[in-house]
Design a protein around this nucleic acid. Sequence first.
DNA 1: GTCTGTTGTGTAACATTGTTACGTAAGGGA
DNA 2: TCCCTTACGTAACAATGTTACACAACAGAC
Lengths: 225, 225
Amino acid sequence: MSTADRIERERLAKRTRILDAARELFVERGIAAVTLREIAQRIEYSTTAIYVQFKDKQDLVDQMVREDFAAFANALHAAAANVADPIERLGRLGDAYVEYALTLPRHYQLLFMTPLDAASDAPEVHEPTGIDGYRVLLETVRECIAAGRFRAELRDADGIAQAIWATVHGVVSLLIVMGDTDAFHWRTPAVIADLALGSLVRGLLADPTAPQRPKRTARPAPRRR
Amino acid sequence: MSTADRIERERLAKRTRILDAARELFVERGIAAVTLREIAQRIEYSTTAIYVQFKDKQDLVDQMVREDFAAFANALHAAAANVADPIERLGRLGDAYVEYALTLPRHYQLLFMTPLDAASDAPEVHEPTGIDGYRVLLETVRECIAAGRFRAELRDADGIAQAIWATVHGVVSLLIVMGDTDAFHWRTPAVIADLALGSLVRGLLADPTAPQRPKRTARPAPRRR
DNA sequence: GTCTGTTGTGTAACATTGTTACGTAAGGGA
DNA sequence: TCCCTTACGTAACAATGTTACACAACAGAC
């Protein structure tokens, strides 16, 4: 059925157009501030046409978020690839994480700083969002443990991975929310991330006398609002 | 003018009633899900009566948040009081932080996980929100540095304080958003916090062979939604 | 004691936004 | 050629934040 294929192709193309327009507006002005009418107008459809592809606004947001979680996980995979030393890999993962999050702060906020609320419809059916990226981290931590790089009493890979995740998440999320308040005299994201993750890893190491990681390039502060 | 006093007192009492009702509803069901009509009904006023005391909904939220930031800062002050050893004080601060945040996750979300948006009206006029608690932490870090407890190359008190803040914030905020997703096999908040903050501090110390902190009582997982 | 102006309150209405009902047009399959 | 599914748009609805306006209460001036 070539015709059915074409129809499906057009259907998917429209879905992509909607998601792209929505993504752009969401990232720019925040999810709550964007109306369906606005999205529809941008792609030259009526508002209700969106409802053919998406059950409601929340469904649109969910599907977009799910796609972008995958992209985020891919970025982490890429950062970890071809790095033999697991400790070094931890650093690379952290760098990539901060990089992604602060390049698209709005997006990060959507992905990791917003409880999924009404997504309780059927999100547990699919792969839980964010689990991909977590697995990369967890595997690296397991390697560190297996290689005897961490102190002997540190055997809980999940706990350690969660602590590391929490640390980098804390840096970026705190900066996204509070980064505009000058009174805190914020250091650059790279400095804070190096201090937090660097010291954390150092505290985990069995042999802290090993050399530290080199400096990275600076990252700009997250943009406003 | 006793009458003017009474009027002012009544005015303040009404304001408090509004804020209390709003707080209760916000904490229970989230800020966006609560309507002004609902708040008004709970305190037996008309909806528009709220507008006499507050410019709009955002203003109401702002004022509530400002008050509660102060309460949070007080909790931190109390936790830090009468603890001579600055390193131990860091731990106490972290404990109090996690305790407060996970006891009132909704509230924490409101305070530290939501960009202030329209609060850009006149929030910078007043003391920036959250700065009180930060000062307690910063002062403690300064003491640690002055006492030579940290490694010699660590001299940037602001940077270190921000890294520590980011770490505990990361633990609680990650759990608030993701804590319900079982696939991550979350450890208890106390375990993650100890791993993250404990290892971070250990990584900062000039002498990591010093004794670790004792275990604390367990904290329940943050409640849903 | 009366008047006046300010302040608080409620009713009604408005604008916006997510959402649904319904009529219509298109187009593929029999 | 006919039917039926699908997509689309117009109009309308419900909920919510917000404003306009009229009225009542009441403190202060005279």
